[in-house]
């Protein structure tokens, strides 16, 4: 009987040793976007997603319905009330898949908003940098960034 008990104990120990105790990382906490009144992704749809392998960044371009429609039409006409938001993250290796890269720390959030008054359409651009979402005050280069964002071809989503 003693032998039986010790065998049972040994088996229990062995099973316990085999159980997997690695911590489970459910979220990609590094890439989390801080909530802020400076931008809002709620209700926005994906226009496209791209990566830059030289810079090691991953970006997703979001837009409201009007922005998505305009982007599919090639942004030939800029109308009012369009919202484009380009989020760019640094990349990191995917712990769950050797062969994949996933977003890491947020690098920037760029927001393009259009507003029409009369016959003119004003295009507003804001760049928020880093996890703190610091507003970039230097306005040089804005025209290029607007052109770049509006020039993105949407991803085929059938």
């Amino acid at each position: 009987m003693k032998v039986l008990y010790s065998l049972l104990a040994a088996c229990t120990l062995m099973l316990a040793a085999c159980s997997d105790n690695k911590p489970v990382e459910l979220y990609n906490t590094k890439a989390a976007l801080p909530s802020s009144p400076k931008y809002n992704l709620d209700g926005l749809k994906v226009i496209t997603s791209f990566v830059n392998k030289t810079k090691g960044t991953a970006s997703t371009l979001y837009g409201n319905d009007l922005a998505l429609k305009a982007a599919i039409e090639g942004n030939k006409i800029i109308a009012g009330n369009e919202i484009f938001t380009l989020v760019t993250w640094k990349q990191q290796e995917d712990d769950h898949w050797f062969g994949a890269k996933i977003p890491s720390d947020v690098e920037s959030v760029e927001v393009v908003k259009t507003a029409s008054s009369g016959n003119t359409v004003a295009v507003n651009y804001q760049q928020l940098n880093g996890k703190a979402l610091d507003l970039k005050t230097d306005t040089s280069g804005q025209a290029e960034r607007i052109k770049y964002i509006l020039g993105q071809k949407p991803s085929v989503l059938p």
């Binding site: 990566v51 890269k101 977003p103």
Partner: peptide, 9 residues
């Protein structure tokens, strides 16, 4: 979207 992945494999 809840995440994106670049699959270089």
């Amino acid at each position: 979207p809840i995440s994106t992945t670049e699959r270089f494999d």
